[in-house]
């Protein structure tokens, strides 16, 4: 059978054709293609990795920004609260101080009033005593202008001293 017996001519040319084809493709064909395909695959991989990284970073950045915003608003609130607190404190302090001051003024006023009152009292007393002595002197002078009455008085005084 012709089909099952390899023909020398065909084997010969096949060998030559295949070797030439192989050498050409081996030198200038396959390595270039394989290198390029692998490089491109690597580049795509890197690109994907880079994009993923970038997305990750972006997400992080967003998160951070949100955090900063939150922090800032928290600080703002705190500051506002502090300010309010300080304000009320200052007012309170001012009030207290004012009260103290007022008290002091009142106390001073009270003291001076008291003093004036005491002085007035003293003065009044002195006046009263002076008046009363004058009155008494006048009365005594009137009653003791005769001797009998003087003697009755001395007796009475002596009685009293004896009883004691």
């Amino acid at each position: 059978m012709e089909l099952f017996t390899p023909d020398f001519g065909l084997v010969f040319w096949m060998f030559i054709a295949f070797i030439i084809l192989f050498v050409i493709l081996w030198k200038w064909g396959w390595p270039v293609i394989i290198k390029n395909m692998e490089e491109r695959a690597d580049t795509i991989d890197k690109g994907v990795e880079y994009a993923r990284e970038a997305k990750h970073q972006l997400d992080n950045a967003r998160e951070e920004a949100r955090k900063y915003m939150e922090e800032a608003s928290a600080k703002q609130a705190e500051m506002l609260r502090d300010a309010a607190k300080m304000k009320s404190q200052i007012i309170e302090e001012a009030k207290q101080q004012a009260t103290v001051e007022a008290q002091k003024v009142m106390d001073a006023a009270k003291v001076s009033i008291e003093q004036s009152r005491k002085e007035a009292e003293l003065q009044f007393r002195n006046e009263v005593s002076k008046f009363s002595i004058e009155i008494a002197e006048k009365m005594v002078r009137k009653q003791l202008d005769n001797d009998a009455s003087q003697k009755a008085l001395v007796d009475k005084m002596l009685d009293e001293i004896e009883k004691n």
């Binding site: 023909d7 001519g9 010969f12 040319w13 054709a17 084809l21 493709l25 064909g29 396959w30």
Partner: peptide, 22 residues
């Protein structure tokens, strides 16, 4: 016999086609 027969020519055509494609 190393004639360029029909098969041999077809072989060359195939080889050239592969080379051109690559």
């Amino acid at each position: 016999d190393i004639s360029i027969t029909k098969n041999v020519l077809a072989l060359f055509i195939a080889a050239v086609l592969v080379t051109v494609m690559v």
